[in-house]
């Protein structure tokens, strides 16, 4: 097994401490070492004060979102050697308040996401024994959102406007509008039909690129706009 020393330039910050800075750690990596594992090695062997979030180690829980070499990624599935750099820069996600080192406050994320209405279906509904309505497979993708915040971190408009609802919440809102299952979608459409709602998006589509689950939040925002445009036209012509 090939092993190499890789430098990790890690964002460091502690509340009440000095201004944010980068600290470099050297870690022995092999071809199976992921960025998350390397960070855990740093925490275990070099600096126990390094703070990060993680849980499942297989891209299911969405807790280890971070910026790796300037891109939003889940640290648990990015292999260090695949990055092809001798120095790996690791930073917390953007556009959410940083709490400590690589951990951001997810409060504003869930504040928006929960307001949009939580997704209603789970993959378990597609088990053999489940009674699935015809055509329901078409609605699968949005259920795959793992609430990792990577789309929010990648969005250039989130970097401008602190009250923008953001791609994750808007995608969740579209999910409810698309397949309401008895819920009244009108209040949600009114919620997103605002300056800081779906019209605030400037079509950079970076959320689509960052999403590790194929939710494609950018497409969902455009679907919301199409629905609202239709609604406005109908209202204009008194229908």
């Amino acid at each position: 097994m090939v092993e190499r020393d890789i430098d990790f330039k890690v964002f460091r910050y502690k509340q009440g401490g000095a201004a944010p800075a980068y600290q470099t750690f050297r870690v022995r990596c092999d071809e199976n070492t992921t960025v998350l594992v390397a960070l855990q090695d740093i925490r275990r062997d070099q600096d126990g004060t390094l703070i990060m979030r993680h849980s499942c180690h297989h891209a299911s829980c969405g807790t280890c979102g971070m910026r790796i070499n300037g891109r939003e990624e889940l640290g648990c599935v990015v292999k260090v050697f695949d990055l092809n750099t001798s120095t790996v820069v690791v930073e917390p996600m953007r556009n959410m308040p940083v709490i400590s080192d690589l951990v951001v406050d997810m409060g504003p994320f869930y504040d928006r996401f929960n307001s949009a209405g939580m997704p209603l279906m789970r993959e378990s509904e597609f088990l053999d024994e489940a009674d699935v309505a015809e055509g329901l497979e078409a609605y699968m993708r949005c259920e795959n959102c793992i609430e990792c915040n990577l789309c929010v971190s990648a969005c250039p408009i989130m970097g401008t406007d602190p009250t923008y609802l953001g791609p994750a919440a808007l995608a969740a809102a579209w999910r409810v509008v698309e397949e309401p299952r008895g819920l009244d979608a009108k209040p949600l459409l009114d919620w997103v039909d605002s300056q800081n709602g779906c019209w605030r998006c400037h079509v950079a589509y970076e959320c689509n690129e960052a999403c590790p689950s194929g939710v494609f939040p950018g497409d969902k925002i455009m679907s919301l706009r199409r629905e609202l445009t239709k609604r406005k036209f109908r209202r204009l012509f008194g229908r």
């Binding site: 959410m96 308040p97 504040d111 250039p156 970097g159 602190p162």
Partner: peptide
């Protein structure tokens, strides 16, 4: 809605718009 304001890393629109590295 809870704002995403971060006192440690203030919003930087120009960087957010024009830093296209890796994008």
């Amino acid at each position: 809605i809870q704002p995403t304001t971060d006192p440690v890393r203030p919003k930087a629109p120009l960087r957010s718009w024009f830093d296209v590295r890796g994008r």
